[in-house]
Design a protein around this nucleic acid. Structure first.
Length: 437
RNA sequence: GCGGCCAUAGCUCAGUUGGUUAGAGCACAAGAUUGUGAUUCUUGGGGUCGCGGGUUCGAAUCCCGUUGGCCGCCCCA
């Protein structure tokens, strides 16, 4: 047993786990690239104030924060949004709009680990800055779907719940509630799925009992499952704000339907998302079976760049986590096999033949082939066994007999056939052989 | 921050009411086998029984603490 273990909630990535992580990163990166997003990165350590400004003081309890040797209050980044807002805000004037950026990075939160949640995890982040219209939401939701489709996940595996914080506020305003009351209701909505009617006790304590008729209307709104229901529910209200939001909803759902993505998206006003900086559409991706926490989440945050000292710049973004994604891929058998096989395994007769083999081995590697050979002198039988177990498609045999004739033997490890080729043609013959498979 | 379950070899686990030097399978390595891959056989390395303390003639086993893991609550950017 080792004297040291990794810290709680942190993971070691041995080669097999690392390859699984790389597969996830590769799919995300391919998706972002296809959508024309540009990759960026940023420091892991940031001023603590950056997160307090965005999320309030209470966030500190869930941060990896400390005082550095220069007396600065710092924190390991718990998310990318404040950082990317700072970066974009600093150069907003020089960046071509719309700004479409993504990153793949590790984040840290000081919380107790549980299923799908660790203290160190990776996230794919994609954001669009400088586009106030719902075109940005269409682009991002389509990208989110692509980033999950890329693993082989289908509409039977996951779906996206789409909601709208502005719509809620405008609706609650139309019902006669003030802004504080509306925030209280949203907080109750957030918990309603889990707690049922008890979710409203917090509201009652602060604002008093919600009128039965109003509550009824809130719950009706919450249960809306389609654009049609949404339109008919809102029809009686003469509100310009609501009409504008409805037009945006038609655009988003229409655009996604035109991309044939409508099966992936569900109208679900039960999603409001925890912290209060979202200003419009919000969305979360979930496993269809529903026993995992959210795969991804995001929404519009039009005020944040300005709040962090930048210009007034509209923004939408989302993040996908690697932990829940990995669990879902595991459940669905979509984890790729761990392959370490070389292309070629070189069998070497003895020390005399080794020098000859080394020249060709290095040339083959220079040509881009993955080539392995035994470090120590080994019996031929052992070497063939090793060649077979390595998963290589072919073996090159450098024995005394062959070299005396000026040839190298190529053995097809799949059907055990062999042929001799002149030594100076090894590269060409290997290329012909491997490209034919 | 709170609660439940758990911790023996790299992995999966056994280990009797507390009793000699803590075991198995798999994996790894060497050999049987000095020019051709299976299977098999032999052998080997690898453990402060998570860590610390206590009870006892004696602790992997019982008790307390602690660290870590899994799971749930809070929270979830």
């Amino acid at each position: 047993m080792a004297s040291f273990q990794s810290l709680p909630g942190f993971r070691d990535f041995y080669p097999e786990e690392f390859s699984r992580r790389q597969h996830i990163f590769r799919v995300w990166r391919q998706g972002a690239s296809a959508f024309g997003f540009q990759e960026y990165d940023a420091p892991v350590l940031e001023p603590l104030e950056l997160y307090k400004t965005k999320s309030g003081d209470e966030i500190e309890a869930q941060l990896f924060s400390f005082t550095d040797k220069g007396g600065r209050e710092v924190a390991l980044r718990p998310e990318m949004t404040p950082t990317v807002c700072r970066m974009v805000g600093a150069k907003a004037g020089a960046l071509k709009r719309p700004i479409k950026w993504f990153s793949i990075a590790e984040f840290y939160r000081y919380e107790r680990a549980q299923k799908g949640r660790l203290r160190a995890f990776n996230q794919f982040n994609a954001d669009i800055f400088g586009e106030a219209g719902p075109e940005a939401e269409i682009e991002l939701i389509a990208l989110l779907i692509q980033c999950l489709n890329g693993f082989g996940l289908t509409k039977d595996d996951f779906y996206i719940r789409l909601s709208d914080r502005d719509l809620w506020f405008f609706y609650l305003e139309a019902l006669g509630l003030n802004e504080n009351q509306a925030r209280g209701i949203l907080s109750a909505i957030d918990r309603y799925e889990k707690m049922g009617d008890d979710a409203f006790t917090g509201y009652t304590e602060v604002h008093g009992e919600l009128a039965a008729a109003t509550k009824e209307k809130v719950l009706t709104f919450l249960k809306i499952k389609s654009l049609g229901e949404l339109e008919s529910t809102l029809a009686p209200f003469k509100s310009d704000k609501l009409a504008v939001r409805l037009a945006d909803w038609r655009k988003v759902l229409g655009g996604l339907a035109a991309m044939k993505l409508n099966d992936f998206v569900a109208v679900d006003l039960g999603v409001v998302r925890g912290l209060a900086y979202y200003t419009g559409f919000v969305f979360e991706a979930f496993d269809r079976k529903g026993d995992l926490r959210a795969l991804a989440g995001g929404g519009r945050y039009n005020d944040l760049v300005k709040k962090l000292g930048g210009p007034d710049l509209p923004a939408v973004g989302f993040a996908i986590g690697d932990v829940t994604t990995g669990l879902l891929l595991e459940q669905r058998g979509l984890t790729p096999r761990f392959v370490t096989a070389p292309d070629i395994y070189v069998v070497i007769g003895g020390e005399l033949e080794r020098a000859a083999a080394f020249g060709d081995i290095h040339a083959l590697r220079g040509a881009g082939w993955r080539v392995e050979y035994p470090f120590k002198e080994l019996a031929f039988g052992k070497q063939f066994k090793a060649a077979s177990e390595s998963g290589a498609k072919l073996a090159l045999i450098y024995g005394g007999d062959e070299l005396a004739k000026g040839v190298v033997k190529i053995r097809d490890l799949t059907d055990r056939s062999e042929q001799e080729v002149p030594r100076d043609q090894v590269l060409v013959c290997v290329r012909d052989f491997l490209s034919g498979h």
